[in-house]
Simulated assay, not measured.
Amino acid sequence: MISRVYHATLFALYQLCIVIGIAAMPLAIAARQAGFTLPIHRILATVEDAYEATQR
Score class of each variant (00 low, 15 high):
Leu13Arg: 09
Ala30Trp: 15
Leu27Asn: 08
Ile40Gly: 04
Ile22Val: 08
Arg42Ala: 15
Phe36Tyr: 15
Ala24Tyr: 12
Thr37Leu: 04
Val19Gly: 02
Ala8Val: 00
Leu44Ser: 09
Ile40Ser: 01
Met25His: 09
Leu16Asn: 12
Ile20Arg: 06
Pro26Ala: 03
Thr9Cys: 05
Leu16Ala: 14
Phe11Thr: 06
Ile43Asp: 04
Ile18Trp: 05
Tyr14Asp: 03
Ile18Pro: 04
Pro39Phe: 00
Leu27Ile: 10
Tyr14Ile: 00
Gly21Trp: 07
Ala45His: 14
Ile29His: 03
Ala45Leu: 15
Leu13Ser: 03
Ala24Arg: 00
Phe36His: 10
His41Met: 15
Ala23Tyr: 14
Cys17Thr: 05
Leu44Lys: 07
Met25Gln: 13
Ile20Leu: 13
Leu10His: 05
Gly35Gln: 00
Ile22Gln: 08
Ile18Asn: 02
Leu16Trp: 08
Ala8Ser: 11
Pro26Val: 02
Arg42Cys: 09
Leu44His: 07
Pro39Met: 08
Phe11Trp: 10
Pro26Arg: 08
Ala45Ile: 03
Val19Ala: 14
Ile43Cys: 02
Cys17Gln: 07
Val19Glu: 10
Ile22Glu: 15
Leu27Arg: 08
Leu16His: 05
Ile22Ser: 10
Met25Val: 13
Val19Leu: 14
His7Asp: 06
Ala8Asp: 12
Ala12Ile: 06
Arg32Ala: 13
Ile29Glu: 02
Ala30Tyr: 12
Ile43Glu: 02
Gln15Ala: 15
Leu10Gln: 04
Ala8Phe: 00
Ile29Ser: 05
Leu16Thr: 11
Gln15Ser: 14
Ile29Arg: 06
Thr37Met: 08
Gln15Val: 14
Leu44Gly: 07
Ile29Gln: 02
Tyr14Asn: 06
Gly21Phe: 04
Ile29Phe: 10
Phe36Gln: 06
